[in-house]
Design a protein around this nucleic acid. Structure first.
Lengths: 196, 196
DNA sequence: GTCTATAGAGTGATAGAC
DNA sequence: GTCTATCACTCTATAGAC
């Protein structure tokens, strides 16, 4: 939309981030120009540089904020049973990612467009998240509630499976997100169960 | 490498494809220029256009050939037991994808850089592959060998889990690809098992 | 089949007016 | 805080020489 000249009460920053998030998710970081972002927001390209020093930093901040939100939203309760902790994790992961399809897509697809230093920072956050799940699996292993050959591999396998939901789930589809959560929880539960 | 002037016995085509595959996988389609591909091969940019009409077609052909190879390599045997067919599928998927990390990466990451028409063609091939697994799950369900709530969801969940291996497996790592296959097969097997 | 040269458009980022 | 104008490149793709 065309805008008139002048200040607009400090709302441009969030609007730029929203527009960038959406465009990056849809077309990819490298394929989106600063002019396209500006046009989506309704400002000229020069105005964008009031909110970040360059395009790389914009990408980094979107990814970092997403990971920090993820980490601050997961609340594992080590005092409960491993099986219950695992169920909470599975349902949380699907819910959280389902609400932020653009951010999820960017976090998984644009890692290679980060500068080496920014990449390291995002990777560290991702590893922290994986550790939450791995701790649950280890606790279940020690309590003989789970049977897994290798907690690290199982962690990566479960996260890959759960995150995959974002790539195909459409809310107009045959199944509700509640159905999906139930089914994924059943699959995960069985996959870590001791063989009978 | 610098090259001298003249023809080079028809080997440039494959070399261009290899270079493009590697560069696209590493940096992303949109971030790689025709000049970078030419430089990697050791020719000037104009020479590339002897082998494809434009950059979009180059990407499409890489993806299409990968999917066709995948489809021609999977040999499901409907006359054997569902459990055996599933094991063959799991091991095949990991093996095939493990041997072609660049092609796998491109096939999953660059879908949005395809023109709508090319996208449809690749999607159709991907669905054909998914159907192989879904048929196995349906057979197992009918034979009461498997218990799955929804064969379509389970198909997508298993493929996401298996394909995830490519994103973290490094041959120098702690576990061999044979270990990985065994562990993934155990997880998949348990996840579709009837509850005891 | 490959080269050089170039057309024509687009890129990220900055300077200075308002 | 946003605008306009611009710098200095880079991009894909093509034409025509060899």
């Amino acid at each position: 939309m065309a805008r008139t000249i002048g200040s607009h009460s400090g709302k441009t920053g969030p609007r730029v981030r929203d527009a960038a998030m959406h465009l990056f998710a849809q077309r990819g970081f490298a394929a989106v120009s600063m002019r396209q972002i500006a046009s989506e927001v309704g400002v000229q390209v020069g105005a964008l540089y009031n909110y970040f020093p360059d395009k790389q930093t914009l990408l980094f901040e979107l990814m970092r904020d997403h990971m920090l939100e993820l980490l601050s939203a997961i609340h594992d309760k080590p005092e409960t049973t491993p099986s219950s902790r695992l169920e909470v994790f599975v349902r949380f992961h699907i819910t959280f990612h389902h609400k932020r399809p653009d951010a999820v897509f960017i976090a998984y697809m644009e890692l290679r467009n980060l500068s080496p230093q920014n990449f390291e920072e995002i990777e560290a956050l991702r590893r922290r998240y994986e550790t939450v799940l791995e701790d649950i699996l280890r606790a279940g292993l020690e309590a003989n509630e789970f049977q897994v050959a290798d907690t690290k591999i199982t962690t990566l396998a479960i996260i890959a499976m759960l995150t995959g939901v974002s790539s195909w789930f459409r809310s107009k589809g045959r199944l509700s997100i509640a159905d999906i959560k139930n089914q994924y929880w059943e699959m995960v539960q069985k996959s870590v169960c001791p063989k009978y």
